[in-house]
Simulated scan of single mutants.
Amino acid sequence: MNVGIGLPVDDPAALLSWARRADAGPFSTLGLLDRLVYHNPEPLVALAVLAGATSRIRLQTEVLLAPLRGTALLAKQAATLDRLSEGRLVLGLGIGGRADDHQVTGVDLRARGRRLDQQMAVMRRLWSGEPYGDGVGPIGPAPFRPGGPEVLFGGFKPAALARVARWGDGFLAAAAPSWAGGLFDTVRAGWAEHGREGEPRLVAQVNVALGPQELIDEARASMYAYYAFTGMPERMVAGMLTTPGEIRGALAAFDGLGADEVMLYCYGRDPRQVDRLADLL
């Protein structure tokens, strides 16, 4: 089972240090979340910079809110980053749920799931080199990975889980092992029902902070602020893992569920967490 690092968003300038440390360590992937009405860096721009600062580690959006973006431009951006990173892009996609993000883009919050399905049909076609349609030709460049970058879908509802087999390569579960097991089973069943070959790639995510109490307090405050829109940020913060034993236990649990990778998502800014997490692996 691979282990990746989810990057903090409070200090974009620090991400280069995080990325270089992770690239030199045992980690498989760098992950970066997405919001629009927030102070986080735009993930595709940020990951493009990190691609140039690294050589082997994968670059994952976790998750990119595709319905907020124009479809043709998103397809071109993803193909470009996949090409320049030599296939290291993993496009984690979701629909989001923040009203303000949708308000500022003029996207109907109620139609975001249907919009994502429509976007995937277009992007898969463009990444395969086919014309856009209606007299409009292909939109390049051709991605490094035939058919486009690897696509993971995040979410919890049936429509989100079914989307994995229809359009994706795997599933991103931001859930505790006690909940993720059932989600994994549903995704596997949908994969088989659609006649897909092989197995879906299953990626889990856990929130961690490893270091002195000052760092843990900072991480909890950052996570609280990020999830304040839910009305129950305390619940999210309570699930943060802050000791080597807790983190090892979660990794073992996800390994038992058949996860292919676990992303250790960090909210504290200190890049020395990369080295601490590497040591416990």
Rank of each mutant, 00 (worst) to 15 (best):
V63F: 05
A22C: 09
Y267C: 07
L183C: 07
Y224V: 00
E197W: 00
D100V: 15
R248N: 02
A160S: 11
L241F: 05
G256C: 07
G129P: 14
G96Q: 01
L257A: 08
D217G: 06
Q60L: 14
T186S: 15
D255S: 13
P8H: 10
A46M: 15
L257P: 03
L44F: 06
Y226A: 11
A46N: 01
A253E: 09
D279V: 06
D34F: 02
A238Q: 14
K76P: 04
L81F: 13
M123V: 06
G182A: 11
N40T: 03
Q273E: 14
E197V: 04
R114G: 15
F144G: 01
G198F: 03
A165G: 00
L32T: 11
G129T: 07
L202H: 05
A48C: 14
F229S: 08
E150G: 12
V9M: 15
L91H: 03
Q213F: 00
A13W: 03
R110A: 05
A13Y: 02
S17A: 10
L73N: 08
P158E: 15
R269M: 15
A189V: 04
V104Y: 00
A174H: 01
G182P: 03
V208H: 05
T29N: 07
G154I: 10
L215I: 09
M236F: 14
L202V: 15
R276S: 11
A53V: 12
L33D: 03
W18L: 14
G148N: 09
M120Q: 14
